[in-house]
Design a protein around this nucleic acid. Structure first.
Lengths: 228, 228
DNA sequence: TAGATTGTTAATCGATTAACAATC
DNA sequence: TAGATTGTTAATCGATTAACAATC
């Protein structure tokens, strides 16, 4: 049994995949770590380590075949075959997620059905995807062997919806609701907490503005000194 | 000058803030690290270290005053005063983001204006927020001193829109487009790459399914042994 | 007082980065 | 061949975790 792959590496792999796909469409047949690192603003050695965990092998002086980079990242992430997913919450965010063709085409994720408490108002269908009442989810999940649930409901509804997913045998929940969920340990929970990302943004912005301010102070101080 | 705070800590602070706000509304007056860690499934010592960087001080045996946890995290992240932000791309994702009252109420982010190439079709307003043509952005950003831009356009339009933001003096870009952007070094770029999060989810799911399968194999093997 | 919890220093762990031989 | 690049091992760095005195 090999060690589990480092989480930071797993998070970087989709970026390499995206770049490799882009290069593939531009008919670039092989990629060196140097090139990938340059495009992504990271480090060649890190790229090499990351690619190594997918099992892809390169040629010295040449790099890795673009096609094999794509295939091995996809294989490693389980994206080579599409997997069905249920969406819960067909509001604006849910509809935006349904509209990302990328999920199906690049990330092996097919949102095959949606569930919403207001499914009636929605006419039972959005963009060709059926929208059913939430109460239908458990039966449907078991019948269709769907293992992934995407949670795109307001925070106040998230807990209840997650419970329904668990009841239906959903094994992995991709949660977009800004709330802390508590799921049974056999269920995988991955949170997309936007505030986490925003915190990094604002923290950096504050630091930059402070630096600007201090630079301004210095300038003033220097000017004053020059006058004297 | 103090060291910059560790990035992992910064990412965890919004979760503590959310929990503290929740406790505040339930009239819980103080919080211990033990309690926070338990609620979030993390470690008390880690929580203590994280809170320490915000400057909040606690009382042995009691914990940290809930109000002060809230205030100091907000202060540290620059969330105590709201900051205006421009949204580019008023499609489904953009509209979902505009609808998050949470940004304004909890995260100090006020989406005060939106820009879209189809602003005309949108009647110049969505949910009370003005939607203007993208070409108006640079002037508006300078006049209103807006420093944060939110990018919620398709990947193919992202580069161009980012350039317009930079032209308008935007200092921080929160990018939701699934693409790698290249911005001048004085501009802060924070990416929300959903595929990164999905990779973690699918990687864990694959591992869990593989474990299930192996457990099944073992069971079969045992049953066969028993028969003999 | 007794004991839970803070604040802080030290030890451990894991990821990143550097170094370098192998290779095409 | 010469030299860029891979693959891998070693060194460094930083974050997490453990330990423990101080304190309310």
């Amino acid at each position: 049994m090999t060690n589990p792959a480092p989480l930071p590496s797993i998070r970087r792999l989709p970026l390499y995949l995206r770049f490799a796909l882009q290069m593939y469409h531009e008919n670039v047949e092989s990629l060196s770590c140097t090139r990938i690192a340059e495009a992504l603003g990271s480090d060649p050695t890190q790229v090499r380590k990351d690619l190594a965990i997918t099992g892809v092998v390169g040629k010295p002086r040449v790099g890795y075949p673009t096609v094999e980079v794509i295939e091995s990242i996809r294989r490693f992430l389980g994206w080579e075959n599409t997997r069905d997913a249920f969406l819960v919450g067909a509001g604006r965010l849910g509809q935006a997620l349904m509209g990302y063709r990328q999920f199906r085409e690049q990330n092996g994720l097919n949102i095959c059905m949606a569930f919403d408490q207001r499914s009636g108002e929605m006419g039972g269908e959005i963009n060709g995807v059926k929208v059913l009442p939430l109460s239908d989810l458990p039966d449907m999940a078991r019948r269709m062997h769907v293992l992934i649930g995407i949670l795109a409901v307001p925070a106040r509804a998230a807990k209840m919806c997650a419970n329904v997913m668990v009841e239906g045998g959903i094994r992995a929940i991709w949660n977009f609701a800004p709330t802390i969920l508590d799921v049974p340990e056999q269920v995988i929970l991955e949170n997309v907490h936007l505030s986490t990302s925003l915190a990094v943004l604002t923290n950096r912005l504050e630091a930059a503005l402070k630096a600007d301010f201090l630079a301004g102070e210095m300038k003033h101080a220097n000017e004053n000194t020059e006058k004297v």
